[in-house]
Design a protein around this nucleic acid. Sequence first.
DNA 1: TGCACCGAGTGCATCGCTGCACCTAGTGTC
DNA 2: GACACTAGGTGCAGCGATGCACTCGGTGCA
Lengths: 218, 218
Amino acid sequence: MPATPDALDRRAALKARHRQAIVAAAAALMDERGSARFSVDELAARADVSRRTVFNHFATLDDVVIAAASTILGDVVDELGARAGAAGPDADVLDQMAAATRAEHLVPLMARLVRMLGGESGAGTTLPAREAALVQRTFALLDERLTATMVGHHAELDDLAVELLVVAFMAGALMLFRHWYAATGAVDDARSRRLWDELQGHLVDLLRHGQGAPQDAR
Amino acid sequence: MPATPDALDRRAALKARHRQAIVAAAAALMDERGSARFSVDELAARADVSRRTVFNHFATLDDVVIAAASTILGDVVDELGARAGAAGPDADVLDQMAAATRAEHLVPLMARLVRMLGGESGAGTTLPAREAALVQRTFALLDERLTATMVGHHAELDDLAVELLVVAFMAGALMLFRHWYAATGAVDDARSRRLWDELQGHLVDLLRHGQGAPQDAR
DNA sequence: TGCACCGAGTGCATCGCTGCACCTAGTGTC
DNA sequence: GACACTAGGTGCAGCGATGCACTCGGTGCA
């Protein structure tokens, strides 16, 4: 949610302010509770709006939670994207994305997301259905955001092939997240990092072939 | 303007908050300018509301100025009233009112009112018509407030004669203010204080007769 | 004196928020 | 299994604020 621009009239500014307050209140409650378990009434009271107003801005309470989680982790995602772009537009796109999504960068992010939404994580722990769905949806949103950032880095190339590559990579990353999450419970340790790098290596290899390099001997 | 009670619903609270903000903004501008000369646009900007909203709460800009001046001086007036009531309900009502409105108490108040609304005061200075009218209307409002306070002190007596006495006294004080103001320009000095006490003495004498005491020889 | 400009004040439509009654699904208890 | 309760979510009417076009009176200037 961008800061309110001066150009907004007072009505639009009020609307933006209230939406911002709702998201911030959700983030605060999630931080305090270590989970996404709070009521609409608690959220409205914390945001200092009526409960009806919450639903004027968001379709469901889960939508608020996802917006809050995205806001909290959005900066981290943007940082990843910025780092990936630092090599300049001439760098190999696939190498950039591979570097940006290595375990050392992405595993802490994914672990934090799961902790934020569902409390403690662990290989043996399975989140309740609602929390698991929240994690998936939020990761998908962050993935989309990173995709947009990566595509933006190469916009000057105006190359459809590059955009397709980025979108395909991020879609693959999203699918791998589900797999990795099921296998590790989103705990952040050496084993889970090794698994992520292995999975991500598969993705990179697959897309490398599609980028014009000669097909490796199996 | 009382603080917003918790019992108000959110709409009523918003309304009260905006009205309060408008009055506070006017008071701030009057304090900075040393006069009541600012525009509706300036007031609205300072109060952080739209200019239409100012007119939703007040009929005219002058009404806002009067509300602000009343708020600023209202505490002083309440203090006068409280002091008058400190002698207890058995004290002579007329003596109380006379004590409360002696020059040492009232002349600083009246001088401050004129300064606030019209800038510097002096015997030779005449305020522009608008500012003069503002002073009259604000004094009338404060006079009414002091009247209510004085009547309240003797409410336990439930005596119509007491209430009539208070109302008559305050109406007399209002009329005397006009006279005193015209003669002194609301400057606060020994001469203006002497004149006020003289005028007030006449009022006290007049009402003393009406209180059952034998008529003094002229 | 006529004209242009400015600012107070107004009417009206629209927006965003709010209050409230209601529905529905899930949960717990007997 | 029936019932009561709770919380998420909804529709609708009303309130307060706002945007905007407008009128009118006051002021300054030629």
